[in-house]
Structure formats: C-alpha cells, structure tokens
Design a protein around this nucleic acid. Sequence first.
DNA 1: ACCAGATCGAGAGCAGTGCTCTCGTTTCGT
DNA 2: ACGAAACGAGAGCACTGCTCTCGATCTGGT
Lengths: 230, 230
Amino acid sequence: MPAPSIRARVRAEMLDEIKAVARRHLATDGANLSLRAVARDMGMVSSALYRYFPSRDDLLTALIVEAYDALGAAVEAADAGADRLDPRGRWHAACRAARDWALARPAEYALLYGSPVPGYAAPADTLGPAMRPPAVLVGIVRDGLAAGRIAAPDPGELPEPLRADLAEIAAALAPGLPEALLARCMAGWTQLFGLISFELFGRIDRTLPHRAEYFAHQTDLMADLLGLPR
Amino acid sequence: MPAPSIRARVRAEMLDEIKAVARRHLATDGANLSLRAVARDMGMVSSALYRYFPSRDDLLTALIVEAYDALGAAVEAADAGADRLDPRGRWHAACRAARDWALARPAEYALLYGSPVPGYAAPADTLGPAMRPPAVLVGIVRDGLAAGRIAAPDPGELPEPLRADLAEIAAALAPGLPEALLARCMAGWTQLFGLISFELFGRIDRTLPHRAEYFAHQTDLMADLLGLPR
DNA sequence: ACCAGATCGAGAGCAGTGCTCTCGTTTCGT
DNA sequence: ACGAAACGAGAGCACTGCTCTCGATCTGGT
C-alpha cells in the first residue's frame, strides 16, 4: 500500500472540511458562497484556501459533483429497495427519494438545478453524475418493457426528425427502448424536476398544504402517461 | 390633466432608462447585476442610482414584475390568437409563446424562474403577474370543459385531503373546475416550466437538435393527459 | 542525517461590489 | 421670490474574489 504521507492525509481531511463548511454556508447563505467566510469559519485566512481550490468556482464544482452523486445514489437506492417487478412502485420510490433529498438540502438542490451563472460552464466531471437520476427512471421503464408490463406507444406519433434524435439518445442510454417511450421518460424526468423546483422555490400555492400527496398524485399522472401497470 | 412637471417627466424617463440598461446588463452578465456598472453605462455615479431605486433588490424586483407581465401578455396574446373552439390548438399556442419568449430573453426567464436568492422574498407585487401564464392554461381547460370538449376525470383518484386543497384553489382560480382536472392543469404548467428550464439551462441532451419538435411533442403529451380533443 | 525543494499559512494589496453620508446645485410649489 | 424638496457627485465603509510575497514546516532522495 502506498502509505500516504502525513501531509497527504492532512490535505485530504482539509479538502473534506472545506467542503463541509462550504456546504453549511450554502445552506444558510445560498448560492452566493463567500470564500472568506468559509476561511474565517476554519480559522484560516482566505488566501490559504487557494492552496486547496484554485478558485471559488472550483469549490462550487466540487460541491456540485458530490451533490449529484449523493442525489443519484439516493434515487438508485430507493429504486433498488422497491419490488423489481412493480414498475409503478419503483417509479414512485425513485421520485419520492429525489424529492426527499431535495427538501432536506434545498440549497444543494438549487446549486444543481437552479439557474446557472452565465459564465459558469459545467465541467465534464459533472455530466456523468448528473445523468444518474434520469437514468434510474429510464431503467425502470426499460425493465418494465422487458418484462412485458409496459406497452410501447405508437411510434407514428413522432415526427421523423425527432424520432431520429430520440433513437440516437436511446441507442446510447437504453438500447432497444422505443423512441416514444423514451420521450415519455423524459417527460417524467422533466415533470419531476419541475415539481421539486416549484415546491422548493415557493411557487406552489400556499393553499396547498398536502404537498406530499400532491407530489404523489402528480408523479402518478406521469406513471399513467408512461403506461406503468397499476 | 395633472400637467406633470418637467422633473416628474425626467424622473419617469430615468426610471425606464435605468431598467432598460439593467436589462441589457442582465442579458450579458446574468443575475449578478452590478449597480455600479449600470450607473457607469449611464454616465452617472453609483450613488445617484439610489435616488431611483432604494436598493439593488428593488431594481431587480421592478425588472421581475415587468418580465412577468411581458411573459403573461405574450402567452395571453398567443392564446387569444388561436381558434377559441380548439383547446389543443390554444394549448400549443400558449406553450409555444412561453417558450419563444424565454428563448428570446434567457436571462429574464432565469430571473423569474431560476433559483431564488435565499434572502430575497418575492414582494406581493410579483404574485399577481406571476399567475398570468398558468391562468391562461387553466382558462383553456375551463373553456374546453364548458364547451363539452373535455371530460372530467374520475375525482376518486384524488385522496381526500388533496382533493380539498385543490377544491379551494379551484374556487379561487376557476370556479367549477373539477379538482382532478385542475391537478392536470398544474401538471401541464409544471411540465411547461420544466421543459423551458431544461432547454434554457443546457440540460437537454446535445444529441437532440430538433428542439422545437421535441417541445411540441412533449406539450402534446400533456394535452393528451388533459384529455384535450385532437 | 541532512538538505534542496515542495508545500503551507499569514499578511498585504488590488480591483470590484452594495450602500451611506455629505455637500453644493437645480428645480418645485407656494 | 423664497424655503423646501429633489438631484448628482464624491468620499468613504465593509465586504468580496484573487494575487503575490515571505517566512515556516514538511518530504523525499542522497
């Protein structure tokens, strides 16, 4: 084994602590994360932070990658915990896990799915983890189709150029998935994002206190659209 | 007539010019709008701006209100331009108008529907204009129902507490609209928001160049869910 | 065991920000 | 015509991200 030097160990711990403190600040102060405040909280001077992250954006990127992975893991775990032969149950479990994760960490969710800063271009590291939650949804539908529990919609509803685009995406994401079904998966994923964002960003009517029930019903509507068996 | 004084006229023009310059900066620099940069562009010193807007947040709020109204007006106009007896046509027209508006002003859309700054609480002035786009969608469905072209779904699909919540919202928004249909309207509105946000914030797969067709198909799926006649 | 080189934290400093206060000047209502 | 209100400019405060320098500490190879 490589026997990591003391310095390497301390540095790794430092990286983790910086991210932890930054996450704490994120929860209270929102996206306008102050490096100096983080440094102050750690008893350091701001310039010392630059030994660990070359810029504020790099710190944010690190937080984003970890958040994507945490969300993806939560959704995957929820799906894995549901009856494999019950597509609708898996669908609801996955959606609810995403909502629970977001409600518990609104600032981190906002970091992932809020409006991006114009200058900030998502580094390639974030692309993979970002696909994990939608991949779970697609996986549920793929399994249901393979088990003969979901019927493929009529492909004729898709105009040709769109069908070709979707076919290409399906080939990379879930080979064999009919294009019209992939389109419905994307609708479900879009809906899930919209639901959570609306709830988190205060766009749900104040006269709707039963939000968990509302969420369950909305995701159930999308399960209907997907043709998941009841 | 009140014969507005020269000063009042100049002040009104100044307010408009400040907002116009701020909108221009918003388009290039994103949500981190700099008051000093706006002032510089106007040949003023930053402190002079405070004669017109007491704080940066107030300027942003003014821009938000105007943007909400512009988006609402665009959606309403598109709906009004469609055949009143064709719910699906009106639905598509309204959705497309929202998308077109957003694509033409991504920064303003992000201002409206991006992640809110934690400290920033939406003033009451914004609540009314913010309801205009979803109100159009609800109106389309209400009209379709009144014309007997839309069937009300089984209310039994709603758990009781949720049904009661939706009934209260329906009473204020569209009296007589069945709760299950209102839920589908909200699903459509959520979907519309999600679609535009994903497209604008770069979350749509790069291998999907036919975005207008994709958008039309996705909104068509929601029209199916709403039971709009084809 | 030692020493050159890498790594680290502290501090000063720069350019930028939102915002406040003061001070003359201009305009308004009476 | 005059007091009061509105206005623009400027200085200044506290804050930000970030850079650079300067000692102190640790590391790996000899």
